[in-house]
Design a protein around this nucleic acid. Structure first.
Ligand SMILES: [Mn+2]
Ligand SMILES: [Mn+2]
Ligand SMILES: [Zn+2]
Ligand SMILES: [Zn+2]
Lengths: 135, 135
DNA sequence: TTAGAAACGATAATCATTATCATTTCTGTA
DNA sequence: TACAGAAATGATAATGATTATCGTTTCTAA
């Protein structure tokens, strides 16, 4: 219990090789070609890594959960109309200092940050009254 | 199709009355005491409001999806050990300008932002090597 | 070795969310 | 007003990602 199990290590390494967040099932499909591993073990490993602060996840509009390592500090603009996601070039929180918090010493491992709105092409198909903030 | 359906309006108003994000089922349980409304309609309304950029949602560590209006721009510190969530006093992105993006004119309606780590009490039960960033 | 603990794989069970479909309500027109 | 087609709704069945279960295997430490 002191360190990662073999499965956890394997999952973490496979996640590191991805250049995009990936679902648990896709991860399984990818890993099982290399080694014998059960889907339940993937979920167990992802959960453990999550609680260790090594892996994070986001949920797409379609409802699928995508995992990635905390190191790849990546955020997306997601279009509410067509569902496409566009990666940000940099993390907007880089170098940002959080205000002192409730118990004033919460230890932050990582964060999730996503933006939702309309991509360029989808904006034209939208009525003016629905428009909000331009960025 | 030009405007909200009665159900969408009702859901949005009920969401506004909440001072915390709430699950679809809890929302249903709360609304059905006031009026006859089906759970499917709640989900349909939430989905429509989501795509209109009026409602957002987050997924807890336990896997439940919680909804809230975009106006209540609220973010949380969530402890990976005990699962408790602590609200931030203010949005760290307030007044922040996004860098020019891919198609350079993505229209942002709202954002989601969450922090994960260890709360004060849970930090003491943790070995030093697992410690990360102090905030 | 060997006993107990932890991890694992296969698969059954769960449960939030979606899809279906018959019914009701709306909207515009004759 | 009466009516036809469209949209919305509620009840409920189906789906599918995640979790629980359980028998087996692997690890750990005496
Ligand atoms: Mn970031
Ligand atoms: Mn905010
Ligand atoms: Zn789009
Ligand atoms: Zn805690």
């Amino acid at each position: 219990m002191t360190h990662c199990t073999p499965a956890q290590t394997a999952v973490l390494n496979t996640l590191r090789q991805q250049n995009q967040p990936i679902s648990a099932q896709a991860l399984h499909g990818q890993m099982r070609t290399q080694q014998r591993i059960g889907l339940a073990t993937i979920y167990r490993a992802l959960d453990a890594l999550k609680r260790l602060g090594r892996v994070q996840h986001r949920t797409t509009l379609a409802g699928e959960t995508l995992y990635n390592t905390v190191e790849q500090d990546q955020h997306y603009l997601t279009c509410l109309h067509c569902g496409q996601s566009f990666p940000l070039k940099a993390c907007p929180l880089k170098g940002l200092q959080l205000q002192p918090q409730p118990s004033n010493s919460f230890e932050v491992f990582y964060h999730t940050l996503e933006f939702f709105g309309l991509c360029q092409p989808c904006q034209v198909e939208t009525t003016p009254e629905e428009k909000h903030l331009e960025v």
